[in-house]
Design a protein around this nucleic acid. Structure first.
Lengths: 132, 132
DNA sequence: CATATACTTAACCAAATGGTTAAGTATGTA
DNA sequence: TACATACTTAACCATTTGGTTAAGTATATG
């Protein structure tokens, strides 16, 4: 039984796969929510034509990560965090499995005697509940 | 100053954007690390030709998420969690900003008087340190 | 040695992606 | 009213993606 989560994760991860879009998301995240950020302001850091930015914004909008609101001739953009939160949940859910198994893997590597098998084992499990 | 994180995030998010690849990652995560999973076992749930699976595996491999090891005529696959951990870190880092700002947004919505602006505000911030 | 198994590589194809320029559209301003 | 501003839409293009089938490679087995 393979749990199918719907097309939203496709759109979200796909949207995050582009560095321009990640930068836009980052900028929107840091901006003042009540103000929003105009398309022009979002476009300013990039050496790219306005239509290219417009396309990126529609990708984010289609993924449900961005909402636009007209304010005169300016369009103010805001981030909707729900899709990224769902993507984060997907990762977190599955990380629980493999972070649990990393201990077993460490044991496997020791018993195998090889100290370089090409895995990125560095003992760093970010996001792990490190509490008491 | 836009912090450039390198091409690995591109490859990781891009790899996760495909449902077949997410299912493979999920299966690898649940599997026994010391055993690995053969390509045939990974391919079995999908109605897809062997070359298609092979391509998906190379995408995951190129993203650094998968390592293969020959064992006779079988190739055992294992998950390398490092890239996904980095992707999770990127999301977590930026979520700190906008989850912080959601409070301000709630206030903005109240003062604006509109109770339906199209945002997905549901008071649900998954991953937030939810106390003891 | 001959054949089956477990894949991969090569060649091809349709559709999607990420960019461009040119031409709209809607709003503000002289 | 005329023009500038802030975008979007349309049309086009090269590259990438996700699939196919056919052929190749390496290992196990009769």
């Amino acid at each position: 039984m393979v749990k199918y989560v719907g097309p939203s994760l496709n759109a979200t991860f796909s949207a995050l796969a582009d560095p321009t879009r990640r930068a836009i998301v980052a900028r929107l995240g840091e901006a003042d929510f009540s103000q929003g950020v105009s398309v022009g302001e979002l476009a300013e850091p990039f050496d790219m034509s306005p239509p290219a930015i417009s396309k990126h914004l529609r990708v984010l909008e289609h993924a449900g990560m961005l909402t636009q609101q007209r304010d005169g001739r300016v369009r103010r953009c805001r981030l909707d965090p729900k899709p990224i939160n769902e993507a984060a949940q997907w990762i977190e859910h599955h990380r629980q499995f493999w972070n649990h198994q990393l201990d077993a893997l460490a044991g496997f590597l020791e018993s195998a005697g090889g100290d370089d098998v090409g895995f990125g084992i560095d003992g760093n499990h970010p996001g792990e509940e490190g509490g008491p």
